[in-house]
Nucleic acid binder design. Structure first.
Lengths: 348, 348
DNA sequence: CTGAAAGCGCTAACAT
DNA sequence: ATGTTAGCGCTTTCAG
């Protein structure tokens, strides 16, 4: 079965191999290999000749061959839930920038929103032979599974939250919850609604933010009212649904803490439809400082997401180069950005 | 003969080689290779035995070895300007979904905003040995360069705009410009500002939209006033800057057409700061129907971006399977979504 | 239908 | 400092 040639294309331009270079430079393939990878024990004059020959032939080592021989693939996988979410895409951008710089390919793998640990593990292990490292973005993986992956001598990093035994980068999410709650409390709010993560799966980021939130409430003697929490999945639509749920109550909250800006946007959308004014009727605070947050004047807790990705990638690259397990240098800074969706509760 | 014993064996991505499987199944490696790839000329009973053995050992062909032997890498590159832009990230998500389904890895490569053709080509050719196909997202590549890439028997697809000689998916951008302009004209606007793409580089999407825009103007006897065009680079900030530039004029426009929603968001932001009301003082229309567009009530021209990515990936996958050059099936549909940023000009 | 063996292009001992 | 050579794990003629 030969491929039906559509046209008279010349034969596949046979790429130069290491042997061609060796011949041209008048040395052995081993020398070429060493010279081109800047290994020691190559005479300067020789290295020079080889480099010229390689340039001449526009030679680049075949990655497949090189991978087979070394066992290193020079690429890293980023596994993430929503590839098109604001958070994820910014992390990916950060990762790609430093990986490209360091000569690594970055392979993206989406596991679908709300994936269970098994799904993530399946995705990770199906890719493990093709990459040197895996960066998990906001996904859950069990300790055992992580161990299984690490046993394949894969470098593992988590961004978004801590994962057992592996180095992780992110922010202090308990602190985020505290900051948001304190801001609202300081304004005088006592009944605060919360738009949570999904409640089927025990996601860790939502859990932490919620913990900090409740902590701050208790600090001032307010007992958290869990009937004021509504689940969401980090989309605009979820935020809108949540606003309705919250405002349909006989005793609606005077303020809402959305665990992510995108859900906060949904709140704004739905409030608009309903004729509810923000912040006059209800205050709103989000998390992320999404590019659009200033546009709608959203008060939020800022974090530098692209930098998280970059940091994760740097850790990967260094770890791959040095072989030692690196530890992250603590949570990245966050800060409250007060805009115009928060105000004191109106006297009722 | 060391079959993993504990119940945790399914957790262990295994390093079994084809030889292990052959031994276990009592056949040759050639047969294993054939059986596992569903090639013809394998007895059912044999295939069965092999499959069981493979399963037992949790065997998966080493991709590097397989690539070296076949010359196919089973991965595709997506080259894109802003990895974190709304448009790009949605395309990437679409691509990844179908690639994963078809067993291809998707490698993202960012070329930086406003890249010149050479940069893109450099990025593309530096990755060409590692992928079977390249999907260009909204980047320019010259005919010659494309040819050089195609000569490496790479499958090439463009999304966002047409590229010479290669199959492309996207929308009719001239039509987009027409739709936006007609909407504004129909409302009674005569002086319409336009927030363009960057003007150093000749990007094709902005050019087309602008063409349709001017066409619609002339249809009703309005001569386009190019002093009302201001360059932008598709960010929120660029939109804000543009609004200021436009409104600082002695004769500001009564409506603004932003070539992308993200720039329109910037307009809203800046208008707010300046106390300019939309649509009372100036109407605004964008393009994309960004997730946040409904939140700010932005009138815009909708397109299904993730679907573009998916379609591009499907074309790639089919082309890779069948070997023939496929042609796309015409531009994807777009439609005007009227929200509340457009209205008739106020009588001055 | 199945097996033996020759690569694919490169790296890494091991020699020299 | 450089060359020789044996793999890396899989695919693919070519025989049988």
């Amino acid at each position: 079965m030969s491929v039906p040639t559509t046209e008279s294309h010349h034969l596949r331009p046979s790429r130069a191999t290491i042997e061609d270079v060796a011949k041209l430079a008048g040395v052995s393939v081993a020398t070429v290999s060493r010279a081109l990878r800047n290994l020691p024990n190559v005479a300067d004059s020789t290295r020079n000749r080889v480099e010229i020959a390689a340039l001449e032939l526009n030679y680049h080592a075949d990655p497949a061959a090189s991978r087979l021989a070394t066992g290193r693939s020079r690429s890293v996988a980023v596994v993430v839930q929503l590839l098109n979410g604001w958070y994820s895409s910014h992390v990916v951008a950060g990762v790609e920038a430093v990986c490209a710089e360091a000569g690594y390919d970055t392979i993206v793998v989406g596991v679908g929103p709300g994936s269970r640990e098994q799904d993530v593990f399946a995705a990770a292990s199906s890719i493990h032979r093709r990459v040197d490292a895996i960066i998990f973005v906001d996904v859950r993986v069990s300790s055992d599974e992580l161990q299984a992956l690490a046993d394949q001598s894969l470098v593992l990093v988590s961004v978004g939250h801590e994962l057992p035994e592996i180095t992780s980068v992110g922010i202090d999410d308990v602190e985020v919850g505290r900051i948001a709650a304190r801001h609202l409390i300081g304004l005088g709010h006592r009944r605060i609604g919360l738009i949570n993560g999904p409640d089927e799966l025990p996601f860790v980021v939502p859990h932490h933010r919620l913990t900090g939130f409740e902590e701050a409430l208790r600090e001032v003697g307010i007992e958290p009212d869990r009937s004021l929490y509504v689940a969401g999945n980090f989309t605009v639509q979820d935020g809108a649904d949540a606003l309705h749920a919250l405002m349909d109550r006989p005793d609606p909250p005077t303020a809402i803490f959305a665990l992510a800006d995108e859900m906060a946007f949904g709140v704004i959308l739905a409030a608009d439809e309903r004729g509810i004014r923000i912040p006059e009727d209800v205050s709103l605070i989000g998390v992320d400082d999404h590019d659009v947050a200033p546009v709608v004047g959203l008060t939020t807790v800022h974090q530098d997401v692209a930098e998280h990705g970059a940091r994760a990638a740097r850790l990967v690259v260094e770890q791959l180069a040095q072989g030692e397990r690196l530890t992250d240098d603590g949570p990245a800074p966050v800060r409250l950005i007060v805009r115009r969706t928060t105000a004191p509760p109106s006297p009722s």
